[in-house]
Computed example of a mutant assay.
Amino acid sequence: MERVGLIDIGTVTTRAAAMDVEDGEPLFLARESRVCDLGRGVDATGQLDPEAIAAVLAMVDEALGFFAENDVHIAGCFLTSAARDAKNVEELLEPLRQRGLAPEVIEGDVEGALTFRGAAWHYPDEPLIVADLGGGSTELTYGTWEPGAENNQPANVEWVHSFELGARRLTDRFLSKNDPPARDEVFECRAYSRVTIENHLPWVGEEVTQPERLVVTGGTATSLVAMKAELEPYDPAMVQDATLTLDDVDEQCQRLASMTESERAGIVGLQPRRAGVILGGALLLGELMRATGFTKVTVSEADGLTGGCLAVYGAAHGQPGPIGFMPEVVDPSARASQ
């Protein structure tokens, strides 16, 4: 058994995990997330906000402290959509390097494949479409998890596409002028999301056969489950494999669209700091379901954090991850001991 760590810096949420891996099976020792909102304003300005950078680095320092206390000697650090878009991303990357990390700004297809690897192992031998609804981008990935596959590559990814659609991006673009947003702003957000997704679906061009299950990961989907069940405190076991119907999502969209951001912050089951982007994410999920033809989705707690940890573990043993991705691995304790 080996212990690996990952710091995953997303557009809305920064997350860290330590995982024990035995015979390729993941077992989380701990995982932590914080809404740092790194992508706030990036869609309009192309710049990361200094306060958001500081919030991310504070979370990273806590994660590195946890790694040191728990003998994590294999670790990776990934950044996603906001970092891909920001012109001043070096203002974040350099402090990460100074902390002994090897930060990698991963492309959308890698992000989608890692999320597929993290989510799909719960559904062996079942063709799946996995959607990762993020803050700045959304990835759709089609494939099958095949236990016992050769070369320790059970995640058979056949198709992946990254959309520039996310809870933060849509909020900034369509829903930030009024609080609550006007009806036409909500309509424009829905329409833009729907058309963008419909133009890139593999079964429309008969590249693949449409699967029977759509698995959705990310803070929007998990929050909607928690809101529906009024989970306080949040319970991952109640969220994993939960079902959201299109009626559930539409009901929450109607509710959220009628509330101010401060009112949303008081909803039981919703992290208060996610109140500013939850409507954009919920509208996106509803249009994703309509565009793909699914009236219900399976929500997964296992996601790119799981897939990323497994990729870090594989890279430490010379094994590339899904679609050939080989992350750079460091010993986070090396700098601390210098």
Rank of each mutant, 00 (worst) to 15 (best):
E2A: 03
G10N: 12
T14F: 01
R15E: 03
A17G: 09
A18W: 02
V21H: 00
P26K: 05
F28M: 14
C36G: 05
L38R: 01
G41D: 04
V42E: 07
G46W: 12
Q47W: 08
Q47Y: 08
D49F: 12
E51H: 13
A52Q: 14
L57F: 04
F66V: 14
F66H: 15
A68C: 09
V72G: 07
H73D: 10
F78A: 13
L79D: 08
T80R: 11
V89S: 13
L92K: 11
L101E: 09
L101V: 12
V105E: 10
I106K: 13
D109Y: 01
A113Y: 02
A119L: 01
P124M: 12
E126G: 02
P127I: 06
I129N: 01
G143M: 13
W145H: 14
P147Q: 10
G166Q: 07
D172K: 02
S176V: 06
D179M: 03
R183M: 09
F187G: 00
S193H: 01
I197P: 01
W203K: 03
T209F: 09
E212S: 15
G218M: 06
G219S: 08
G219L: 02
T220L: 00
P236Q: 12
A237Y: 07
V239A: 13
Q240W: 00
L246C: 07
E251K: 13
Q252Y: 12
C253G: 10
R255N: 07
L256V: 14
L256H: 10
M259Y: 06
T260F: 11
E261H: 03
Q271L: 07
R273G: 01
L283Y: 00
M289S: 10
T295M: 05
E301P: 10
G308L: 13
L310H: 04
G314Q: 14
H317F: 02
G318M: 02
P320Y: 05
I323A: 02
I323M: 08
F325W: 09
M326V: 01
P327N: 02
P332A: 03
